[in-house]
Every structure is written in structure tokens, then in C-alpha cells.
């Protein structure tokens, strides 16, 4: 839902980042307003997953330039947990297994951390159980998964559902979903996408990182951005994703080659 007067939630300006000595992001700019759904597409290695991790504050990535304003704050100066408490959510491409930590307790601690960030009071175990059982329906998840260790022994689809369950509990302002569609069969994809659609509203925003059009068949983006070699090459509406699907990524290479010839026009 595009409303030009909606408040800006996330404003990325010329973001540059590296992992170890390898520059990955080479100047990404992107503005996301409340109510919008953005999709970032691109080949493996284009930097789209790095963008999501840098936004969430992964310690392996070093920001070397640019700014990110999040609801008016300097996002990059915040510790990862403070970003989360302020409502930034990263749905992991590969959710991490944590043996010995019960999923239910993890969800409760995380939910209460976010509630504290919103100035709401913590939920006790009983109130939280009620909430989690209600939110389980968003992803049609079996309550038995609450009793297990975080993601341990979950199938790919179960892990992704658990991510969306966390999103449903944490009530983010900006949800960044990294390859949420990878490893999902068509039924699981529908359930996960249904959850995302259910949670998207006029006051929040979603940034989908994806390789394939198929996720965008079930979640309609307002904007599609194509990334290559650490930059956003082109931005368009949902028809850009269809174009990518039809023509593949080869034209991106051609466009890149053209850019290389006329570097002065970049940025």
C-alpha cells in the first residue's frame, strides 16, 4: 500500500559494508514508508542477504559508509538487541538451532523484550501461553513445537513457520525476511506467505529478500528492487519481478557492463 504521506520507517543512504576484507555492499539506498511491501531480488552474491544482516547488526559485517535512519534513530549505532526491541525484525534464511533452550521460553523472553521496548508490561507465563496459542494459528503450527528446543530437529518448513511465529509475537515495525521462501514446498510457502500477509498492515512495512518470483505470486510487493554487485540497479513495481522471471538475470549483466563503461553516471 503506497501512501506518499505515510511516515518513513527506514531510510538507507549509500550503505557500504564488508565482511572481513571483502566489500559486499557498495552504496545501497532505499526508503521504506509505513504500509509498504518491498522486494529485493538478485542473484546469489548480489549482496541482498548481507543487506538484511547489516540491518539487523550481525557482528561479522562491518559498515564502512552510509547511514540508516530507523524511525528517526541512527540504526547503526544500536546493538542488535536494541534494534529488535525497537521493532526491527529479521527473518533468518537459516534459522539457528539452539539445543537445550526451550522454544516456548525463548519466545516468551523475546516477546517480553519487545514489549519492554514498546513500553508495555511483561507477560507472565500464563498470559504468554494464551498469546502464543492464539498466534500459532497464524502459521498453523502444532503446539508440540513449543515444547522442543529452539529449531532443533525442525524441518526447513517448520523452521520458517517458527520465524513467522516470532514475527507474529514480536509485532515488528519493519520486518526483513531473508529468503523466507527457500526450502519450502508449495503448501508451506502458502502458509508462510499467508502469515506475512496477515501481519502486514498500514503501520508497518515488510522487506522481502528473495531469489524467485514465486514468493511474489502470493505476497504482492509495492516496490521491487534488483540488486547486483552490492547496489540496487533498478527499482520498479511488481511488474519488474515478472520481467525478471521472464528474462532471467542476464539483462542485469548487460546493464552492469553499461554502467562500468560510464562510471561517472553512477551514484
Amino acid at each position: 500500500m503506497i501512501r506518499p504521506d505515510a511516515p518513513v520507517l527506514l531510510e538507507i543512504r549509500d550503505l557500504q559494508a564488508r565482511v572481513e576484507d571483502q566489500p559486499i555492499l557498495k552504496g545501497v539506498s532505499l526508503t521504506i514508508r509505513a504500509g509498504e511491501i518491498h522486494a529485493v531480488m538478485g542473484r546469489n552474491g548480489s549482496g541482498k542477504s548481507t543487506l538484511s544482516k547489516v540491518l539487523a547488526g550481525h557482528p561479522a559485517y562491518t559498515v564502512t559508509g552510509g547511514t540508516v535512519r530507523y524511525v528517526g534513530d541512527d540504526l547503526l549505532s544500536l546493538e542488535p538487541e536494541l534494534r529488535a526491541r525497537a521493532g526491527l525484525f529479521l527473518g533468518f534464511q537459516y534459522p539457528v538451532e539452539i539445543p537445550g533452550v526451550s522454544n516456548l521460553e525463548f519466545l516468551r523472553v523475546a516477546t517480553n523484550a519487545r514489549r519492554a521496548g514498546k513500553g508495555e508490561e511483561e507477560l507472565d507465563t500464563f498470559a504468554f501461553e494464551d498469546l502464543v496459542r492464539e498466534r500459532l494459528q497464524v502459521v498453523q503450527m502444532d503446539p508440540a513445537f513449543l515444547e522442543r528446543s529452539v529449531n532443533e530437529g525442525f524441518s526447513g518448513g517448520e523452521k520458517k513457520r517458527n520465524e513467522i511465529l516470532q514475527m507474529a509475537l514480536l509485532d515488528p515495525l519493519v520486518a526483513v525476511l531473508d529468503e523466507t521462501d527457500s526450502g519450502l514446498d508449495i503448501d508451506a510457502l502458502r502458509i508462510v506467505a499467508g502469515g506475512v500477509n496477515h501481519l502486514a498492515g498500514p503501520d508497518n512495512a515488510t522487506l522481502l529478500i528473495t531469489h524467485y518470483q514465486r514468493l511474489l505470486d502470493v505476497i504482492t510487493p509495492d516496490y521491487v528492487h534488483v540488486m547486483a554487485v552490492g547496489r540496487i540497479l533498478r527499482t520498479g513495481g511488481k511488474e519488474l519481478a515478472l520481467e525478471l522471471e521472464e528474462r532471467g538475470y542476464d539483462w542485469v549483466d548487460a546493464e552492469l557492463a553499461a554502467l562500468e563503461r560510464t562510471p561517472a553516471e553512477v551514484g
Binding site: P80, E81, A84, F89, L90, F92, I98, F106, A110, A113
Partner: peptide, 12 residues
């Protein structure tokens, strides 16, 4: 594992 928990608002 630490980052996963931090990304859910849990302090280091």
C-alpha cells in the same frame, strides 16, 4: 546462536 537471540531483543 548469540546473534540469533540478540536479533530477538535478548541482550548479549
Amino acid at each position: 546462536e548469540l546473534f540469533y537471540l540478540q536479533s530477538r531483543g535478548i541482550a548479549a
